[in-house]
């Protein structure tokens, strides 16, 4: 089984718990996978405000909240929903092939 071009395999879909936040790395880049209502989202794992691991954060209404200062990011777009962060969180594209979740190497543009 080969990864789609520009994508890396991360985890089997079934191994990600509903409502779970799973940290992973692509090279030295910390990222997270989120499963919510069956959908998978992939985002940068580090808050854009100050260094904080979003894998330790909380999900509420399709927003992931930074554990340290409450910055909120929309899971789908990475857009800031609450300060203190002002820069969006990079989001990555997902493909699921044969039950395996693949994540794009490069962030989605715009």
């Amino acid at each position: 089984m080969t990864a789609p071009k520009g994508y890396v395999a991360v985890k089997r879909y079934d191994e990600i718990p509903e409502g779970g936040i799973v940290p992973f790395r692509v090279d030295d880049d910390e990222r997270i996978l989120v499963k919510l209502e069956g959908e998978i989202y992939a985002l940068s794992g580090i808050c854009t405000h100050e260094y904080a691991e979003l894998a330790e954060g909380e999900l509420e209404d399709h927003v992931i909240y930074c554990p340290l200062h409450g910055s909120g990011f929309d899971l789908k777009t990475g857009k800031v929903t609450s300060l203190p962060a002002t820069e969006p969180l990079p989001v990555y594209d997902i493909q699921i092939v044969d039950g395996v979740v693949y994540v794009s190497r490069e962030p989605r543009q715009g």
């Binding site: 330790e56 909380e58 554990p67």
Partner: peptide, 10 residues
């Protein structure tokens, strides 16, 4: 104990 903040807030 940051993980308990948002559940507490709820």
């Amino acid at each position: 104990r940051p993980r308990e903040l948002r559940p507490g807030r709820r």
